[in-house]
Design a protein around this nucleic acid. Structure first.
Ligand code: ZN
Ligand code: ZN
Ligand code: ZN
Ligand code: ZN
Lengths: 161, 161
DNA sequence: ACTAATTTTGTTATGGTATAACAAGTCTAA
DNA sequence: TTAGACTTGTTATACCATAACAAAATTAGT
């Protein structure tokens, strides 16, 4: 995860939360305490967080501990475009580009479990074209790639050079 | 699902089972009764089948009705490359190209729930390249597209013309 | 401020997906 | 034939997600 490596992750969190505030304000959505805290907790790392892991963290802090609490927060955050669900992991990840309309394409490290979101217009266009060849009208895309990230390959320097 | 439309689906099943027999023989794997029947049941349609749906069908036919029965069969069939898991649906689909090394790329119809598997070397190459740009070594790909198939758009004729 | 409508949260219950752990049976090859 | 490997049976449990309805809080109109 070279882009995310050796960075001040507090910046990630601060930016994400500031973006969330702005977006919710613009769209007349309410970023309530539990929603805001859920988003912060998801952003604690670049690893996707399971719904029940999140629920446990929220419960520790005095929030209600029944599943609907966390799924409601997750639904809200997903609808607002502030997080993505990683289908292959049944887990949730903060979105770093919430202010731009986009699909979530993910690179998932099998070793450290960090996930990098990437955007790739070329692939998106290719997929639309490919689907059209089959008479298929594309609506949504789940693109989740796994493998080894740069750090886990020990190649961070070479690659970034 | 224009390619799959108006076809004799028994051919799909027969071909899939014959391929399974051959592959298992070649690889010294045992296609036992429950595994074989599970594969047939998954191939009953081009719609992915949930593990518990499959379990119910097997149970009706006198197979053991505990979850490990079905998950073991599914694990076997997936390892043998005879089926794929559709992650975004938590469901399993017969693979029509089990004899070729490939990734499963899927077009999933939101309306009729049929799934078409497609292969797309260009996209595969693009993804490897894109991953490499991030220092990432690709191991597996989950590509699941949803939308409307040709039949459900009522465009089968135009597209196939 | 008062009230009604809307949204959010609390609560209980249930359904759907998947695996751990260990025992028993079956197949295969020496 | 017997040991080892593989497969299946069985019980229990963990994890993921939603339905349904009640209560509380927020918002908007008066
Ligand atoms: Zn970060
Ligand atoms: Zn890694
Ligand atoms: Zn068919
Ligand atoms: Zn369709």
């Amino acid at each position: 995860m070279s882009e995310e490596h050796a960075h001040n992750h507090n910046d990630c969190i601060d930016t994400a939360l500031a973006t969330a505030e702005t977006l919710c304000l613009e769209q007349g959505q309410r970023l309530t305490k539990v929603r805001r805290r859920a988003l912060e907790l998801i952003w604690e790392s670049h690893r996707p967080l399971g719904a029940y892991q999140l629920l446990a963290k929220l419960a520790e802090e005095g929030f209600n501990s029944a599943p609907p609490t966390v799924y409601r927060a997750l639904d809200f955050l997903m609808n607002a475009g502030l997080i993505h669900k990683v289908e292959s992991m049944n887990a949730y990840l903060g979105c770093a580009h919430a202010d731009k309309e986009h699909k979530g394409y993910f690179l998932i490290c099998d070793e450290c479990h960090n996930v990098m979101e990437f955007d790739y217009q070329d692939i998106h266009a290719s997929l639309i074209a490919k689907a059209a060849q089959h008479g298929f009208e594309l609506r949504s895309e789940t693109i989740e790639l796994t493998g080894l990230c740069a750090d886990c390959r020990g190649l961070a320097n070479e690659v970034r050079a």
